[in-house]
Simulated scan of single mutants.
Amino acid sequence: RLKALVIDGLEEKLSLCRQSMEEVDLKLRREELSPEGRKSLERERSLLVTKAETYERELKVLRQENRKNAAIALAIVLLIIVVYSCWTM
């Protein structure tokens, strides 16, 4: 349950990060900027891309752990069913 909350939090951060990247991209395309302003926005976009990549990596790891834990839980349940079935025969 804790991991689900962590995953939800990371997904929210990733969503906000992508939204900010879209806003920066829009400013870079539509606004006339000074060279310093453009450079500043490009730096901001670069930082946002790095953040987004980090969030995506963390989400990938957490999801893999969740799949592994679900598979282990399923295996345990199946083992219990088999043991119970053998015991009651």
Rank of each mutant, 00 (worst) to 15 (best):
R1E: 11
L2M: 10
A4H: 07
L5V: 10
V6T: 07
I7L: 06
D8K: 14
D8F: 09
L10R: 00
E11Y: 04
E11K: 07
E11P: 02
E12L: 06
K13M: 05
L14T: 00
L14D: 03
C17D: 01
Q19I: 05
Q19E: 12
Q19W: 01
M21I: 03
E22T: 06
E22N: 14
D25S: 13
K27L: 14
K27I: 06
L28N: 02
L28Q: 03
L28I: 03
R29G: 05
R30I: 14
E32P: 02
E32N: 11
L33K: 02
L33V: 02
L33H: 01
S34C: 05
S34F: 04
S34H: 07
P35G: 10
P35F: 10
G37A: 15
S40E: 15
S40R: 12
L41H: 02
R45E: 10
S46I: 01
L47T: 10
L47W: 10
L47C: 11
L48M: 02
L48C: 02
L48G: 00
V49N: 07
V49A: 15
V49C: 06
A52S: 08
E56F: 01
E56K: 04
R57Q: 15
R57W: 04
K60S: 13
K60E: 13
V61W: 04
Q64F: 09
Q64I: 12
R67V: 06
A71D: 09
A73F: 05
L74R: 14
I76Y: 07
I76T: 10
V77W: 12
L78V: 09
L79N: 10
I80H: 05
I80W: 11
I81E: 11
V82M: 11
W87M: 11
M89E: 13
M89Q: 15
